[in-house]
Nucleic acid binder design. Structure first.
Lengths: 122, 122
DNA sequence: CAGCATCCGCCGTGATACTG
DNA sequence: CAGTATCACGGCGGATGCTG
């Protein structure tokens, strides 16, 4: 979701929406918070996402300062993504969504991570 | 934003995301909570939205049980949209978004409604 | 005022294949 | 493993115009 293209600069809600929009964004943040940090891990937990999309989202998130990227110059290239404080500040939002889903949408599963089972939530 | 097309039924976060996604959805809910209830009011507060989109979103929200619609069989047709308890349950989410926007995005304006000035927030 | 119908364009997303 | 390049599709949302 996004928002008014006009004066979004004055609207905290709109601005936040702009960041969180995108089909996978929230899920990526959630999985990052859940401990997954590597590209392929996310690719697996967010099963169904294309590497392209994951890459794009991750990059956008990085530019927004929500995610930090650490590259390890090793032989088998390794990269880890972690939430920045700013990214962590988004977690309450996710908590609310989870609470809402459970309370009003009948999603009783306590492991929302079940959205993409990574072996029963790592 | 949306989510895994596969097992979203088990993921509260995904499911909620599905509802809240869409460029204007959150804003509509916010404005509804802010007191605006008529079609044209929303059209004005969400300046920039097309009647088509507003109509579509409102309908979707209604079908999801987030918004209730009251029609007044009067001469100048009047319709009022109000948040249902379920819709109200989404407010904390918006509050968090607002808080995030203010704290991390520099949106100091306390009236996020400023997103679409309806005469200085009704 | 409320809102539907139609047409159209954009962008996010998916699929697939290839590279460092 | 960790991406990037390309191609193409689909749906959301915008613009306009019409009806009840």
């Amino acid at each position: 979701m996004a928002a008014a293209t006009k004066d979004k600069t004055t609207c905290p809600v709109c601005a936040t929406a702009e960041i969180v929009c995108g089909k996978w964004t929230i899920l990526i943040i959630r999985d990052l918070a859940a401990g997954r940090s590597r590209f392929c891990e996310l690719e697996r937990s967010l099963q169904g996402i294309s590497p392209r999309t994951l890459s794009l989202r991750l990059k956008a998130l990085e530019e927004e300062g929500v995610v930090a990227r650490k590259t390890y110059p090793e032989v088998p290239p390794r990269v880890e993504y972690v939430l920045t404080p700013k990214g962590r500040a988004l977690l309450p939002l996710i908590e609310d969504m989870r609470a809402f889903g459970r309370e009003w949408l009948g999603m009783k599963g306590d492991i929302d991570t079940a959205c993409a089972p990574v072996e029963a939530a790592a």
